[in-house]
Design a protein around this nucleic acid. Structure first.
Lengths: 214, 214
DNA sequence: GCCTAAGTAAACAGGTCTGTGTAACCAAAA
DNA sequence: TTTTGGTTACACAGACCTGTTTACTTAGGC
């Protein structure tokens, strides 16, 4: 039931598999390099060289690096897919999904937060899409909580995204997937406090991480 | 009692006031520019020009930009000062302090997280100091919780730092100081759940923010 | 007066970056 | 066959980056 990654509520950090068109190949490569090394650290030459195309071809598909950056972030913005599981399970599964991503060696934090940190507050285009993504995640939590009949779903949803982003930031600097488990435990306490029934036995070992936990 | 900023548990994001020596002036200016605009976005020329000194003078005080970056982060790493207030109050005051900082127009997230995001995982010197800072904050929480006699202070301390870093990341992209209040509310729930007595009347309005909450 | 220390100004080396211009190539469509 | 569109290779402009070099000035201490 948990074998594939299809239960991931947010696939925003894993690009789709098939590299088809030239534009998609460029985007896929830009995604990999921008995310892993940083947007400012990667030049368009590097991206073109990695694919094996000329810089001219890249500029034939994207008018500027800024446009490529925007497309990179847009592509990361994948909305959650509907699930038929109980809302409480969906919420907690988010943290399991996070832990799995933390354990992957190529996890480097939230691309939107990183982009805002790197490009500064002046870059309104980047900031706008980052805000949109954060809000969409918050609304997803809020909707699940509403389904559960939680009184102030809005406030609790905000608290849950704090745990998500907090664990992402902590893992970024500490490389410790256990941060996701800590966030999940805190989320359980918050949910129980709001009257949500959270089963204690639903602890999933979530396949031991690929990195040392400290 | 809350007039000055001396009750701030973590002053790590506000530099000391007096610009004295040349070295300190350089550091102060580098701090302002690195933090507000980004480390990669600011060249040493810009820093020297801002102070009104020659680039040669800057290089007489710091052997390289990397050394300046390291000194910048070291200077941000100011340890918490001892307080005689009750531990529970100290813990919650952390979030009030956060909210005050969020409301300031020159807040731009956690300098350590930003530096790691910008400079990438290869820069071990930066990563090391970032880890040290995060751990020192976690241990500060843990010690306060131990004073309160909380059973598993370690795990709860981790959860609290998730709330701190989560609210910082959220405020970075959303410019919404209310994230600190949301974190504080969540912290209260976690503390109460651990058996800590948290007074509900201790709500401090914390002087309305200077920025629009959305 | 003289020496030293520190700062200034400006050029420079060698590198990277974004983005453009140009000429040649190749394959498929008309 | 001819045309057309996408591609390649490569040079280039103009900007910015880190770090060094050279020569000049200034201020204090002896």
């Amino acid at each position: 039931m948990l074998l594939s990654s299809e239960q991931d509520a947010f696939r925003c950090m894993a690009p789709p598999p098939a590299p088809q068109t030239m534009k998609e190949r460029i985007l896929e490569t830009a995604d990999k390099l921008f995310y892993l090394q940083g947007i400012r650290a990667i030049g368009v030459d590097t991206i073109a060289a990695e694919i094996g195309i000329s810089k001219r071809t890249l500029y034939n598909h994207f008018p500027s690096k800024d446009a490529l950056i925007a497309a990179y972030l847009e592509r990361r913005f994948v909305h959650a897919r509907p699930s038929d599981k109980p809302p409480a399970e969906q919420i907690l599964a988010t943290f399991d999904s996070l832990e799995r991503r933390f354990a992957a060696k190529d996890f480097r934090g939230c691309p939107f937060v990183n982009a805002v940190a790197e490009l500064g507050p002046q870059d309104l285009a980047v900031k706008k899409i980052a805000i949109a993504f954060k809000e969409s995640r918050r609304l997803w939590f809020r909707d699940r909580l509403s389904e559960l009949g939680v009184a102030n779903a809005d406030a609790l949803a905000t608290q849950l995204v704090l745990l998500v982003d907090g664990s992402i930031a902590q893992d970024l600097v500490r490389d410790d997937p256990a941060m996701a488990r800590a966030a999940k435990e805190a989320a359980k306490v918050l949910l129980r406090n709001a009257g949500v029934d959270v089963s204690d036995g639903a602890e999933r070992p979530a396949a031991s991480g690929k990195r040392a936990p400290r």
